[in-house]
Amino acid sequence: MIELINISKSYNQEVNAVNNLSLNIPSGQITGFIGPNGAGKTTTLKMITGILKQDKGAIIVNGADTLTEPIKTKSQIGFVPDSPDIFLRLKGIEYLNFIADIFKVNSVNRKRIISELAEKFEISEALSDKMQSYSHGMRQKIIIIGMLLHSPEVFVLDEPLTGLDPKASFILKELLREYADKNKTIFFSTHILEVAEKLCDRVAIINKGVLQFYGTMDEMKNHFRQNSSLENIFLEITENG
């Protein structure tokens, strides 16, 4: 599970990107993180993964503090960043081998996992091409395979469905559900409310760096108007926030 305890983050001590955010993201469930552009979603996810350091508060990933035990927390996390334009000079397979080396996935397992996932995401043919020649969606697929390669305990995904074709989106959603059922922690941000509504067990809504709502889908519908769509609730929360 991921525990965010009163975390705050400001840029240049001026803009408060995240303000005193506390969240308990349980394992075995899919938690969606939604909010308008600039709400603080990516900043929060980057703090969890260790790219950014929070100004205040603590982040605990499966019992390990991200600041004091960074290697331990990072080893447990599989992250999909908001932009898949990374390590573009490497070939798809080179990138995956690199990730496997870093996460110490042995050569037998990595071959099996890469073959299976590449087949699933229909990218086997392109593995020996440089990632620079890939489309946005293909890059996204490789990053997702890289994330799944070491079977992490915690999944942190920033807009993972952007650029994916419908089939790949479907497969990813299925996989996320499968991993949640195996008691893994899934935390992902999305703009697509329909996806959040259908896929998530819990939703956290953030606006201007402040948490507006956190609970199960049912709790949210009870809390707001019954039978109202997530879209209406989202608009109501963010406009009032």
Partner: peptide, 26 residues
């Protein structure tokens, strides 16, 4: 060039590399 024909053979790593040698390789 995503539409180009993919003829390259996929080079799965035959043995495990250390983190350092993997970083140097990259």
């Amino acid at each position: 060039s995503s539409s180009k024909s993919h003829t390259g053979k996929v080079a799965f790593a035959s043995k495990d590399k250390s983190i350092l040698s993997s970083l140097i390789n990259r």
